[in-house]
């Protein structure tokens, strides 16, 4: 098992290399010159060339990539072209904010999804199943930035109960968990939770109703197990697949909360990325994309490891 984990962790190295290469390429393939965004339109060409050389942007792309990678490995993510300060501290605090939001939204979505899906699966084809399934489909279909705005209009504008934007005093919600900060977390995390809740509901519903019709459930009833004893078996059987779906959804939330973070002005990586795109701030863009991609890779690894440890049918060799 330990050898398996080690090997899986080692796999991360080539994957990360490939991911960073793709990130780098994409940024440079995209139209728009960062220097044009920085300088006045009427700047003389020599000045532009000098600035370009200063940032190393006159070098061939492979050389640029090599230099960038060398620095990244040393923990230097470069300097923001716009703000003129190192990217790393900003990135860390933004990642923290995104992490808090994604985990809260994710947890909310998964608990709702498991409960709804479990009930719908057990009472398949009853009215309650139909209602829950309709809710799940609606959850997956509603654009979440639209839902975010509707929630803001209802709870912030009309009822004046919750703040509409930001992460509370001090900006970052990383370590401060009091009501003053949780207030700010409520609307964005609900908005973020809707899609995973819908997806998990449908997954769990399918799994549970499938498991409930299996022969071994009849065996368990025949053994005299009561309802709660059987639930344990159903959970254990449904867990590997559910965890895989949940892990991928969480990775999506980490990287895919750009719209929600923008709607709620949540100071996370999503908003950072959005700003960097508009300002053509290449170092920020590259660093943020890389970190988000690595989130994805690491979460995938965790999902695989957890799945392997709880499902005996997956080979550990």
């Amino acid at each position: 098992m330990i050898a398996y984990i080690l090997r899986r962790v080692l796999y991360i190295v080539p994957i990360s290399l490939a991911v960073s290469l793709v990130c780098f390429m994409l940024v440079h393939i995209a139209p728009g010159d960062p220097i044009d965004a920085m300088v006045q339109p009427d700047t003389p060409k020599e000045v532009i060339d000098r600035v370009r050389a200063e940032y190393g942007l006159d070098q061939p792309l492979p050389v640029q990539f090599g230099l960038w990678l060398l620095k990244v490995v040393q923990g230097d993510f470069g300097t923001s072209l716009i703000k003129g300060r190192p990217v790393l501290p900003d990135l860390i605090s933004a990642s923290g904010a995104t992490f808090v939001l994604a985990c809260t939204g994710g947890l909310l979505g998964f608990v709702t999804g498991c409960v709804f899906g479990g009930i719908a699966g057990v009472y398949r084809d009853s009215w309650i199943d139909r209602v829950l399934l309709a809710v799940a489909v609606a959850g997956v279909s509603v654009p979440h930035y639209w839902l975010g705005m509707v929630l803001v209009i209802i709870f912030s504008v009309n009822l004046n109960m919750l703040p509409a934007m930001g992460a509370g005093p001090g900006g970052s919600a990383v370590s401060i968990f009091d009501w003053e900060h949780i207030r700010y977390l409520i609307l964005p995390s609900i908005t973020l939770a809707v899609i995973p809740a819908g997806i998990v509901t449908r997954t769990v519903r399918g799994l549970v109703s499938d498991i409930m019709s299996q022969d071994y459930i009849t065996t368990l009833r025949g053994k005299g197990l009561r309802r709660h004893g059987i639930v344990g078996h159903v959970v254990r059987n449904a867990a590997p697949t559910t965890l895989a779906v949940i892990g991928l959804q969480l990775a999506n939330l980490m990287g895919g909360s750009i719209l929600v973070e923008t709607v709620f002005a949540w100071p996370g990586t999503g908003m950072m990325l959005n700003t960097a795109i508009f300002q053509r701030d290449i170092p920020v863009l590259q660093a943020t994309t890389l970190v988000l991609a690595l989130f994805f890779v690491v979460l995938n690894l965790l999902v695989d490891l957890v799945q392997t440890s709880i499902d005996p049918r997956i080979s550990r060799r």
Binding site: Q214, D215, Y216, T218, T219, L220, H233, R236, N237, I310, D311, P312, R313
Partner: peptide, 11 residues
Amino acid sequence: FQEPMTALDPV
């Protein structure tokens, strides 16, 4: 039961 493969909980 008839089918010992499916009548036992796989996990």
